[in-house]
């Protein structure tokens, strides 16, 4: 396959979104996958040429991130969450069922080129466990039978909808959206699924609300500047050595250095 002029133009367009063009590399590789069905040597060369870096550097990036595939992906990428919570709730059973139904192993594609099956890590939908993703759209509260039916529909070419999103597009179409070229499906699907609304529903039912705010913007004018107090707050907030153990951390201070000191 040869990359089209249009694709080259779009790769340049992605790089131009950023103060430094190399920042575009992740979305550029998504676009390569959309155009080529996988990360191809030609796609790597194209990105390298446009960004003025070596093909080895681009390859290094393409092999680091799990969404980039070196082998052709089917029309539908099916990801079954088998991280602990989903696995326990049924994800392991779902993954076993699909492997057996499809006759493929992890990260393999059916012979008809329709389905690529993969077990995936936590996809941030634990309140809908067990979760399956089809082309990175949510399929919530799955069972082995429900998952198998979805696969049958996909293979038969029937229209399938995400339980919390729009109709499923092909993997290559999805990759184009990830590259930053939106399709027109943002308004499809609900605002939220049932589990997302369960606490809000209880609050409505019981008349619970956040306290009413003091009105008026004047309240902002009396913010005192008390450096000692701020420093004290920093000391109070300085976490114990174990606090570093959450990866989604937001530290912006020397706490990590201190913590490394503690640990040694």
């Amino acid at each position: 396959m040869t990359l089209s002029q249009q694709t080259y133009g779009e790769l340049e367009e992605i790089a131009a979104r950023y103060p430094e063009p190399r920042s575009g590399l992740l979305p550029m590789l998504h676009l390569v996958q959309s155009a080529e069905g996988r990360i191809t040597p030609e796609g790597i060369e194209a990105c390298a040429g446009l960004l003025g870096v070596t093909a080895a550097e681009v390859s290094g990036v393409a092999t680091f991130y799990t969404m980039y595939k070196r082998r052709p992906v089917g029309d539908y990428h099916v990801g079954v969450c088998t991280n602990t919570l989903c696995a326990v709730m049924g994800g392991d059973a779902i993954f076993d069922r699909l492997k057996s139904d499809l006759g493929v192993g992890n990260d393999e594609t059916t012979e008809d080129g329709k389905i690529t099956l993969e077990h995936i890590e936590c996809n941030a939908a634990c309140d809908y466990a067990p979760v399956m993703m089809v082309n990175w759209e949510f399929m919530d509260n799955m069972t082995p039978d429900a998952a198998a039916r979805i696969i049958d529909d996909l293979r038969a070419g029937n229209e399938v909808h995400s339980t919390r999103g729009p109709r499923i597009v092909t993997w290559r179409e999805a990759e184009r959206v990830l590259a930053g070229f939106p399709d027109d499906l943002a308004d499809e699907g609900p605002a939220a699924g049932p589990a997302s609304l369960v606490g809000l529903g209880l609050a409505r039912e019981r008349g619970w609300t956040a306290p009413s705010s003091e009105q008026g913007s004047a309240v902002h004018d009396d913010v005192p500047e008390e450096p000692e107090q701020v420093e004290q707050a920093a000391a109070d907030a300085s976490p114990p050595s174990s606090e570093g153990a959450t990866v989604e951390k937001e530290s912006g201070t020397s706490e990590t250095a201190a913590e490394k000191g503690d640990a040694q």
Binding site: A186, D187, A191, A192, S196, L197, G199, L200, G201, L202, A203, R204, R206, W208, T209, A210, P211
Partner: peptide, 17 residues
């Protein structure tokens, strides 16, 4: 109150997005 919807308060609104 026990629950205090602020960030979630509009999630049940029609086309909240």
């Amino acid at each position: 109150d026990v629950l205090t919807p602020v960030l979630t308060d509009n999630w049940d609104q029609e086309r909240s997005w």
